[in-house]
């Protein structure tokens, strides 16, 4: 740990951004390309088929909508956590961060109920290409949610020890940026899979 500290994480003299912030934005840029590819594949396959099931005939729109609310709310709570962090309110930070985590788990819970229903109806990724797209896209999104849960819980548990670390707020901000991105992906997945 000590040896890594030679690289000081100071706001760059040249770019005006901290390493963490620049780094997370670069990472998000690559994530944009990743999900763009998945959406391209989806569109190519969908537009290349002579007919495609309407999402709402097959999928559970109310659950999808509730999940959207859950994820949007968690985006708000994480930004409130960041605001509390900036205002040096540790208790407030922890509350909002825990709330974010709880909402993330709610999201995954609803998701697993949805998947379970599908499996019980014998709808698997191999059933047809619609379910292939549905399971792979929502599955990859769920993996990103799990990644966010890990990141956010690390921050939650690090809060006591590193509260006075000047870099801590930057990390919360980075985690928040990532979490909002996960939210944005879902915002596109909802209409793409469920509604159209």
């Amino acid at each position: 740990m000590s040896s890594s500290a030679v690289a000081v994480n100071y706001p760059g003299e040249h770019s005006g951004l901290t390493n963490a912030k620049l780094g997370i934005w670069l990472f998000l840029a690559s994530e944009v390309m990743l999900f763009a590819t998945l959406f391209t594949s989806y569109l190519v396959i969908r537009l290349g088929s002579s007919s495609w099931p309407r999402g709402w005939e097959v999928l559970n729109v109310p659950l999808g909508t509730i999940n959207t609310f859950v994820l949007i709310t968690s985006s708000v709570t994480i930004i409130l956590a960041y605001a509390k962090c900036m205002a040096r309110d540790k208790a407030g930070f922890k509350t909002y961060m825990a709330l974010t985590l709880a909402l993330a788990f709610v999201f995954l819970g609803i998701k697993s109920v949805e998947w379970g229903t599908k499996f019980r109806a014998h709808h698997f990724p191999s059933t047809n290409i619609f379910f292939g797209v549905y399971f792979v896209l929502t599955g990859l999104h769920a993996l990103h949610v799990i990644g966010g849960i890990i990141l956010n819980s690390v921050l939650l548990f690090m809060a006591d020890k590193h509260w006075d670390d000047p870099l801590f707020a930057g990390r919360v901000e980075a985690a928040g940026l990532y979490w909002h991105f996960v939210d944005i992906v879902w915002i596109f997945l909802l209409p793409a899979l469920y509604l159209l």
Binding site: G48, S49, P53, A121, H122, S126, N128, F130
Partner: peptide
């Protein structure tokens, strides 16, 4: 191309055999 119609049938009796 020979595009196919993607249709979802309700509650298939059994899981499809693995290809």
């Amino acid at each position: 191309r020979q595009p196919i119609a993607v249709v979802v049938e309700e509650a298939k009796p059994a899981a499809p055999a693995l290809p």
